[in-house]
Nucleic acid binder design. Structure first.
Lengths: 210, 210
DNA sequence: CAGTAAACGGAAAGCCTTTCCGCTTCTGCT
DNA sequence: AGCAGAAGCGGAAAGGCTTTCCGTTTACTG
């Protein structure tokens, strides 16, 4: 559920044009090896690790890397895409297993953990590097509907205000989850997020008379 | 009020040791020129502008830059220090001119604008680069008391909860003010901030029974 | 199985930051 | 004033990274 088949509806620019032929087998293999290696290296040494480290681990030359990913940032984007998929896939599962408000809360935890762990993600998304525009689009494409559904269900119970969109919440949490110098405890991020989430509750309506 | 005199209480490691002599006049001149040039260049081309651009504008060689600022990041830090000062100085002025809750709101606007405009600041602060640890300390040193005062005054009115510290608020707003790819309208940041600030209000206490 | 285009690898170019060191310019002292 | 001597200067070179380029190799097609 987490691998996008080439040409699947979500992938922006890969629908099978009548003209393009199937890629060579070694190319595909190398591409997979690169993404896998990048995952490992990014996890071990952070997203700023030199490309060499990745190509070595993948057992290919740098040329190969740059043919598949015209900019280094594109590789980062490709890796993050996987992570986004995994997080999006968790949504339906949760909403099936719990009642709306709880499902929402759980998913937000999941998302907070995700976006906080993959330090690279939020950084990339907000870097302003044009190479990440596509990733941001993908990010919204996959996560916005997921959260929107959870959010709508929760709003229907009347406990959550309905004038803040899923997109806003995604952004806010992603931002609040970025590491802060003095505080490396992930609980810190959660605390900030929780204040934000409090702000999401229906504004205390004056208690209905009697 | 915005220039720190050397040896002033706030500057961490610059108290006049009995051994150290006054710096040479040209050195001081160059240092000022560098900071001024950096301000200009950062504003024009962003904090990632090559150092060469700065040294050229300042009319000095790169060697001079690196003697004054052992790492490039140190120069960024020096520039941001100025901006932090300006923002801190706005606090007392506002609290003198307005009642507590309004003063708080105004200062948050000011701070939001500041941290949103100087894209470099939040980026630097959260970059994890050890060169910015000092800056972060300075940031807290100057802004935390400022906000704490405003926050306390507001909390005293009972409209604002008192279990979230000034530091948390500073961090949260700085994070929420970072630019988000699709939305370059500063109003967007303000909207996110405002939800957070809503979360800051006293939790709607269950109406005391009759 | 041969021909061809796709894909490969790694050397080299191009940019940056940072270091180094011989030369210049202040400054304090006579 | 004038003269050491230290403090500071400039820019060349080192080092490291991303990105380009191109001769060579490899997988597919008929």
């Amino acid at each position: 559920m987490s691998e996008r088949a080439p040409g699947s509806a979500e992938s922006p620019a890969s629908s099978a044009n009548p003209g393009d032929r199937r890629p060579r087998a070694d190319a595909r293999r190398n591409l997979d090896a690169l993404i896998q290696a990048a995952r490992t290296v990014f996890a071990r040494s952070g997203v700023d690790a030199p490309a060499k480290e990745i190509t070595d681990l993948a057992g290919v030359g740098v040329g190969t890397l740059y043919r598949h990913f015209p900019r280094r940032a594109a590789l980062v984007a490709a890796v993050l895409q996987h992570e986004i998929d995994a997080c999006a896939d968790a949504g339906p599962a949760l909403s099936a297993a719990h009642e709306p408000v709880l499902a929402l809360a759980r998913w937000m935890d999941r998302y907070t953990a995700f976006v906080g762990t993959k330090r690279g993600l939020a950084g990339a998304l907000h870097s302003g590097d044009p190479a990440f525009e596509g990733l941001h689009a993908y990010f919204l494409q996959r996560l916005e509907p997921t959260l929107a559904e959870l959010l709508d269900a929760a709003a229907a119970t009347g406990e959550v205000r309905d004038d803040i969109g899923a997109r806003d919440v995604l952004h806010a949490i992603a931002l609040l989850s970025r590491p802060v110098p003095g505080e490396d405890d992930p609980a810190y991020s959660r605390r900030l997020v929780s204040v934000f989430v409090d702000g999401l509750r229906t504004p205390s309506r004056p208690a209905p008379p009697a």
